[in-house]
């Protein structure tokens, strides 16, 4: 592992490079699992959430994770497809759902310790560019919308309302079903 570090001069750069490698691996892992297992037992009983569209922009596959035990934070996921370039600039929920909603990204850093998986960290992102006709996927271990300090527990079967703000398409209100596990 040390050889990796010695080849690179700046520690900041090292970390960035490693982080990107880690991300790519994690993402391809996930997408392959999802793509290949359509008929697998794990996907049975999936309810297809209603699709929302405004103009030429659509959001599909939205779901929010039920809160666990008495934990106050949770996350929600969806896929955006737009016919034109756009930018997701903000997400919000009513205070009756959670104190705050934020777009987040989970990143993986390749480990220095010799362990297999690097450390993971999540942090807010200002906005997300949506490229025309290219689905942008929010998914576990990647981009997600964080809900901080839920007003009451989110339980499977609940539906919450989330507002998405796009630079070009304006705002969209989305009904998001609460699930205890990824669909």
């Amino acid at each position: 592992m040390n050889g990796m570090r010695m080849n690179l001069t700046s520690p900041a750069r090292t970390r960035r490079v490693r982080r990107m490698v880690g991300c790519t691996l994690a993402v391809s892992f996930l997408s392959i699992g999802v793509a290949a297992c359509g008929s697998d037992g794990e996907s049975q009983g999936v309810k297809t959430p209603p699709e929302s569209t405004i103009g030429q922009l659509g959001v599909t596959g939205q779901w929010a994770r039920a809160t666990i035990a008495d934990a106050k934070n949770t996350a929600l996921y969806f896929t955006v497809v737009s016919a034109a370039n756009d930018r997701l600039t903000g997400v919000s929920v009513d205070a009756s759902v959670a104190a705050r909603a934020e777009m987040h990204q989970t990143m993986t850093m390749t480990s220095d310790s010799g362990a297999a998986g690097g450390e993971m960290q999540m942090g807010p992102v200002d906005g997300i560019d949506i490229e025309a006709n290219t689905p942008f996927v929010f998914e576990p271990g990647g981009y997600h919308v964080m809900l901080f300090d839920v007003a009451k527990p989110l339980v499977e079967g609940d539906t919450i309302t989330v507002t998405l703000s796009f630079k070009v398409h304006g705002t969209m209100t989305l009904d998001v079903p609460v699930l205890s596990e990824a669909p």
Binding site: R65, M120, P140
Partner: peptide
């Protein structure tokens, strides 16, 4: 426990 993305995703896989 205030990890809403990675931890539940992983522990769900353990459960399954």
């Amino acid at each position: 426990t205030s990890c809403p993305d990675v931890c539940p995703t992983t522990l769900s896989e353990v459960k399954k």
